[in-house]
């Protein structure tokens, strides 16, 4: 799969838009875009676990919660955000590795339920362990980070901070999916038995897929905390995990740009469907069902199929042309 010239140009245009566009946006627009970045990072993590390695997880929201709480607690106590973010990522990496163990034993819906149970348990811990998480009242007054010497209290400055983190992650993510690891993930998804027979240590890769995916959830959470400047248990209830799963599916699971697109739709959706008043969630749910009927690999799945079809048509047309030309020369 080579990047075509079109894709490169499109990526550059989008990158430029993300750099320059927010200067002209209101505080609200910048906040929404920052939220999109946070959700994209979490969805990228889930896309690695689900889209590439084929391991379903309904616990990504819980990892966001762990990341948010760890980094809220650390930054409130004066630690700089990058340290808190790395700590969040590390904690979630370890937790994700552990959550990967059930995946070694069970698959599909069983795995979905194990991870769902994990997410529900995490919510209960956030809510009940008041001595550390602040309980039902949550944690307030979470500071925004400094970049070098500059405070990022303003919406634009913090947006760029988030964008910087996203940039780094997008690069790492690109490298990862093209690395032997990424290919091993795909092999795992397509046919685990075959992958094993090819000498891929499937056990280790399943754990790695869970660990890295979860760590990215932690990073997303550690940006969520200073963005909202408030964390409370309901924010990380099971709903969030379901939402993130839908983002990955809608965008296109297993596609590099899938999580970006899925998160964009989910974050902007209430805005786009504002005219429908109370019906936006219903319409979204309807759209998701329709999409799954048409293409279970999401919007990018449709686009991909369309492009492949066109290429096939062009190729077969070319073949037909050469063939008829050949026929003509024969005559």
């Amino acid at each position: 799969m080579k990047l075509s010239a079109f894709a490169i140009v499109a990526s550059l245009v989008v990158a430029l838009g993300l750099l320059v566009g927010p200067i002209f946006l209101s505080d609200y627009g910048r906040y929404i875009l920052s939220m999109w970045i946070v959700m994209s990072i979490a969805a990228i993590g889930l896309n690695l676990t689900l889209g590439y390695a084929g391991q379903v997880s309904l616990a990504q929201g819980a990892f966001m919660g762990v990341g948010a709480y760890v980094s809220a607690l650390m930054t409130i106590h004066g630690w700089p955000l990058p340290v808190a973010m790395l700590t969040s990522a590390l904690v979630c990496l370890v937790l994700g590795w552990m959550l990967g163990y059930p995946a070694l034993r069970v698959q599909h819906h069983y795995l979905a339920f194990v991870t769902l149970a994990f997410a529900s348990l995490a919510f209960l811990i956030f809510r009940n362990e008041e001595w550390i998480t602040g309980g039902v009242d949550g944690l307030a007054n979470i500071p925004r980070p400094y970049f070098l010497w500059m405070a990022t209290d303003g919406s634009l400055a913090f947006y760029y901070y988030c964008l910087g983190v996203l940039g780094l992650i997008a690069l790492g993510y690109y490298g990862l999916v093209r690395s032997p690891w990424g290919r091993a993930f795909l092999a795992l998804r397509e046919n685990p038995v075959r992958a094993m027979s090819l000498g891929i240590d499937t056990r280790r890769y399943i754990l790695v897929a869970f660990a890295i995916g979860s760590a990215l959830g932690g990073v997303a959470g550690s940006l969520f905390a200073p963005l909202v400047q408030f964390v409370e248990p309901p924010a990380f209830a099971v709903d969030l995990s379901l939402k993130l799963l839908l983002m990955v599916i809608v965008g296109g699971s297993g596609f590099y740009f899938g999580p970006f697109l899925g998160a964009l739709i989910a974050v902007l959706l209430p805005e786009w469907l504002r005219f429908t008043q109370g019906y936006y969630l219903m319409l979204y749910a309807f759209f998701v069902m329709l999409l799954l009927v048409i293409s279970p690999s999401g919007i990018l799945g449709i686009a991909d199929k369309w492009i492949t079809d066109r290429k096939t048509r062009v190729a077969s047309a070319a073949r037909a042309a050469t063939a008829s030309a050949f026929e003509e020369t024969k005559q």
Binding site: V56, L245, L246, I249, G278, M282, F286, P296
Partner: peptide, 27 residues
């Protein structure tokens, strides 16, 4: 229409259906 895509897409469609039904009744 979805079953042929596998167990997981159908499970996810179920989640969407759940939102759809709850929001419908809520309205």
């Amino acid at each position: 229409p979805i079953r042929k895509h596998g167990v997981l897409p159908l499970a996810i469609a179920g989640m969407a259906l759940s939102i759809f039904m709850q929001e419908g009744v809520k309205n």
